[in-house]
Amino acid sequence: MKLVIWLRRNLGLLITHLILSGASLVILLPILWVMRTSFANRLIAYKIPPVWFFTPTLENYRIIFEKYPFQKYFYNSILVSAAASLVALALGALAAYSIARFKTGDPILRLSMLSTQMLPPITLVIPIFLLARIFHLWDSRLGLVLAYLSFNLPYTVWILIGFFQGIPVDLEEAAMIDGCSRVQAFWRVTIPVSLPGLLAAGVFNFILNWNEFLFALILTGRETRTLPVAIASLWTQQGVQIGAVSAATFLVILPVIILTWVIQKSLVRNLTFGSIK
């Protein structure tokens, strides 16, 4: 009898848990399966029906670092992603501050930042490829950094405008009355106060760059390619190397998953271009 009453009161909650657990499994199982395969040796990785229990091995990780220079691709990815993100942050913060505080070029300048988000990558990659050939920037990390600035820079300006607008002008005025110049007030008051927003924008740009594929595919060569291009190229070399592909995939998604959790609080703002805070 008690059970019936309990069920009647909590049936909705029970069904909710069932659905959410199901959805969580749909998300987790594919990732866990790839993780499992990355630790399987050559024979076990290809076995169907699958072998459920085996001694894990680092063979696949050895392959991607010794047979393919994945350390180089990691280096390229980190360097290019971070460089574009940092340059965008530096230039973007200054411009966003000017637009937010002095209404510089309002509203055309502000809206033109947002409108670049509509640009399909394919529209930009064609001219950027041709220009990179002319200026000898093809197959160079610098060329890819410049290409990534095409979306990092306007995005950063746009998102930081909203952020600076949320910081009361009074803070800077108080600093200026206390004897700071405007530039000092910006450096000593506004920047420290807006550090969380700057950090979130920077990390978000880093993830976008880390994930980017089309520009990297077109603009890089064997030495300069980034991780997504390297993973895609594993598919064509000597058929499918299930173990190696799994190991590389797992290593590339792991930092992204962790970063997603770290910046979870600011994600909504970043993903919706500040339209929802």
Binding site: L28, V240, T260
Partner: peptide, 20 residues
């Protein structure tokens, strides 16, 4: 925490996982 995982994964890795 779990349901948010796929959102920022590189599309190339998502495709790779499902192709496997």
């Amino acid at each position: 925490l779990i349901l948010l995982i796929p959102m920022l994964m590189p599309p190339i890795t998502v495709g790779t996982i499902w192709r496997l």
